[in-house]
């Protein structure tokens, strides 16, 4: 028997009862369950473009999957070696001339440290906050370490995966998989509470937004 466990639980049980509220707690969920714009709508994608850019990600909008390769290649520029998750669509890399390392079998940390960039998809993106979420169980997103060690991350987000608000994103995610919510390149506010981009995570973050282009 774990004596500490029993003791902590016993203390907490008596404390729970000693300080119990007079009536049971009811959680008022009157906040908005969904955002202003419909998931995948042109407005939601346009707002995501703004919020990503506001936190120093660089965004390219393209009309369809066929245009992704050119946008990815432009972001990668003269990168010589990149890593991609096992299931990243090969078509997305058609315009890139450098060396592509698929993370299967898994690359070592040292190998990753010598690569210039990583290209992934995303599980969902949140327009209100400029966030995308990486689901490490997803074949086009891959292990957490591949989006952490290389200094440049190119993320391809489909319009269908763009929601407006945080609650809509949480509802789409599987909590049993390791998830990483990313909002802009790594940053710190630790020096005089001013935000500075670029610390331990990737210092450069580029996003390709696919579809839902607004007609002008």
């Amino acid at each position: 028997m774990d004596v500490a466990r029993e003791e902590v639980l016993a203390r907490l049980r008596s404390a729970r009862d000693a300080g119990a509220p007079p009536t049971p707690v009811v959680v008022p969920r009157k906040y908005r369950p969904a955002g202003r714009y419909a998931p995948g709508s042109a407005q939601a994608v346009a707002r995501l473009d703004e919020t990503l850019t506001d936190y120093r990600a660089t965004v390219t909008r393209v009309g369809s999957e066929a245009d992704v390769a050119a946008a990815v290649a432009a972001f990668l520029g003269s990168a010589s070696g990149i890593v991609v998750p096992p299931g990243l669509p090969a078509e997305w890399l058609a315009g890139f001339v450098g060396e592509v390392h698929r993370d299967t079998p898994p690359l070592t940390v040292d190998a990753l440290d010598h690569l210039d960039a990583v290209v992934t998809g995303a599980a969902v993106a949140i327009a209100d906050t400029g966030t995308f979420v990486l689901d490490s169980g997803s074949p086009d997103q891959g292990r957490r370490v591949i989006t952490l060690v290389p200094d440049h991350h190119v993320c391809v987000i489909r319009a269908a995966d763009v929601v407006c608000s945080v609650p809509e994103a949480i509802a789409r995610l599987d909590p049993t998989r390791p998830l990483t919510f990313v909002s802009g390149p790594s940053a710190t506010s630790d020096i005089e509470l001013d935000r500075v981009e670029g610390v331990h995570g990737p210092r450069r973050l580029d996003v390709v937004l696919v579809g839902a282009l607004t007609r002008s």
Binding site: P178, L179, T180, P185, G201
Partner: peptide, 17 residues
Amino acid sequence: RMNPYTSTWTGVTPGDG
């Protein structure tokens, strides 16, 4: 609006972390 990184994990995931 959101901090740069939020990590969530559940127990141990074979092959990741």
